[in-house]
Nucleic acid binder design. Structure first.
Length: 508
RNA sequence: GGGCGCGUAGCUCAAUGGUAGAGCAGUGGCCUUUUAAGCCAUUGGUUAAGGGUUCGAGCCCCUUCGCGCUCACCA
């Protein structure tokens, strides 16, 4: 075994632990054995014992040492694995003095240990493993960033545990090892994805995968990340949405498709934005945005049932009720009620800009009308939609992929879902007319200008696909991270992403 | 990118411009039903990094790095 860890300058605590590992090896004990004899996880052992305490239960358990209480001739300790926590009881009568000394000399908090013995209850009633044999499974050189723990009312209370957000995100492994509530967040997250898959699979949707590396990006107004294929000498973009590829599949008669995957947007980070995030999109032939609205309510309610067992969710100190139907607010009327501006009365950006200025709203000059409306939504509506709410019927000029509302050329059939003051999802009746789609692309090109990174590039192959005929359909996109935030009661997206993006540390 | 705040021992936190401390962890002892066990003793610091003011800087000033909040940006 090498006697150093070259990547790290070891502090005193780490040197002591490394010395212990080296000493173990010298004494013929492997601090990192290849195999274990673990028979069950801790939760299984406890369940078996409580099911029938009259018979003898012998287990070999593995886990990290979380607390030790040596008391001379006996030692109490707690170990924890991914499923539970249990007390160990070491006694000189059963183990002998040498083994007791070995435990005290070689084992530290955070080490992985394997312990064999039978379960019993101490006189305070705690289920405990009386250890007859034990060995090191993996020595921890760096101490876990936590002191001891205790159990108060069934909850594990870790004292002086890692709490600096930067350290927690950079060393998420330590955060997870030490803060079991963080582990729960990611169980919720996995449950969300599992529930959504089940919901869509049950309704005949086909899960597909489309390119992440795209020669032309589209489907959203966002700045892309750029990369390069060396051999093909071709610039490629990391996708900003799946939309244009998934809708090509409807042309190909895959009538119901969905994808859960990663989108990348080269924009600022915030409590609800991470440069890469997980998105669900589905497309549904022969449906429209009204049907999608209903399916959305059902899907989210189903997810709540599966993951939390309730549709009433506490988020940010407020109770959210995910029972359908969600509140429905028409965009134009919603803005009239919220700020007194009727966007239909201002068909040009200059008119709308004047109206907003008249209300004392700060407006950056030269914004297209769509962006002005977007600002109104953000300022007056989004933050106030705490309970699940659909905002519907958007202006055509901020929705280049959505289909016109019949009889109203300035409005498209689009809705966004808001919960907890935050946009959760976005959906529309999909534009399936190639001539109109081409016109929209050209308009967007004019609106933003050639130098605006957010302009929609013309995707000629997408128009080619649509020209083969695309069935009428509804489409939908939702941020998985944001839904997880709501169900896990986390106010920042970084809490629901295992390794959120952080600036690189400058190491000289 | 702008504004405000923060960065002290492995972890959690103290410290009027005047000798950098505590609890836990660690180390050495005592202790056969404890549970943040207890008791005695004890190690541990380039106060994020660099520069400046001062007799003297963790504290005041400047620069840099990182993080947080917020504004801007963000279909």
């Amino acid at each position: 075994m090498p006697e150093r860890l070259l990547i790290m300058e070891l502090n005193n605590l780490e040197k002591v632990r490394l010395d212990k590992a080296l000493r173990m090896r010298q004494n013929g004990r492997d601090p990192y054995p290849t195999r274990t004899a673990v028979s069950n996880n801790i939760s299984e052992a406890i369940s078996a014992f409580t099911a029938d305490e009259t018979v003898e239960h012998v287990f070999t358990l593995g886990g990290r040492i979380r607390a030790t209480r040596p008391m001379g001739k006996i030692i109490f300790a707690h170990i924890e694995d991914g499923f539970g926590r249990i007390q160990l009881f070491f006694r000189v009568n059963t183990l002998g003095e040498e083994a007791m000394k070995q435990f005290l000399d070689e084992f530290d908090l955070g080490d992985f240990i394997q312990a064999t013995g039978k379960l019993f209850r101490t006189k305070t009633g705690e289920i405990t493993l009386e250890v007859t044999d034990f060995k090191m499974l993996a020595k921890a050189i760096t101490p876990l960033p936590a002191a001891k723990d205790e159990v108060v009312d069934g909850e594990i209370v870790r004292h002086a545990t890692l709490s600096d957000p930067e350290a927690r995100y950079r060393q998420r492994y330590a955060d997870l090892a030490v803060n079991s509530d963080v582990r729960k967040v990611f169980q919720v997250r996995a449950g969300v994805v599992r529930a959504i898959r089940q919901f869509l699979d049950d309704r005949g949707f086909l899960e597909v995968e489309t390119p992440i590396l795209q020669p032309i990006y589209g489907g959203a107004a966002a700045k892309p990340f750029v990369t390069h294929h060396n051999q093909l000498k071709q610039d490629l973009f990391l996708r900003i949405s799946f939309e244009l590829y998934l809708k090509r599949l409807l042309v190909g008669m895959l009538d119901r498709v969905y994808e859960i995957g990663r989108d990348f947007r080269n924009e600022g980070v915030s409590f609800k934005h991470n440069p890469e995030f997980t998105q669900l999109e589905f497309y549904w032939a022969y449906a429209d945005y009204l049907k999608v609205m209903e399916l959305t309510e059902q899907m989210v309610a189903f997810t709540c049932d599966k993951v939390l067992g309730t549709r009433k969710v506490t988020f940010n100190g407020q109770e959210l009720d995910f029972n359908p139907p969600w509140k429905r607010v028409e965009l134009r009327q919603g803005l009239i009620d919220a700020c007194g501006i009727d966007i239909a009365a201002f068909p040009t950006e200059t008119g709308l800009e004047e109206a907003m200025k008249a209300k004392g709203i700060k407006v950056k000059p030269g914004m297209p009308r769509g962006k002005l409306i977007d600002q109104l939504i953000g300022d007056y509506l989004e933050i106030n939609f705490i309970q699940p709410t659909f905002l519907y019927d958007y202006p055509r000029d901020i929705s280049p992929l959505a289909k016109n509302k019949p009889g109203d050329p300035s409005t498209v059939e689009r809705f966004e879902g808001f919960v907890g003051g935050m946009e959760l999802c976005n959906a529309f009746t999909e534009l399936n007319e190639p001539m109109e789609q081409e016109a929209r692309f050209l308009e967007m090109g004019r609106e933003y200008g050639a130098d605006d990174e957010e302009r929609h590039p013309m995707d000629e192959d997408y128009l080619q696909a649509m020209s083969y005929g695309m069935p009428p359909c509804g489409g939908f996109g939702m941020g998985i991270d944001r839904l997880t935030m709501l169900l896990a009661d986390k106010r920042t997206i970084r809490e629901v992403i295992l390794f959120p993006h952080l600036r690189s540390r400058d190491e000289e």
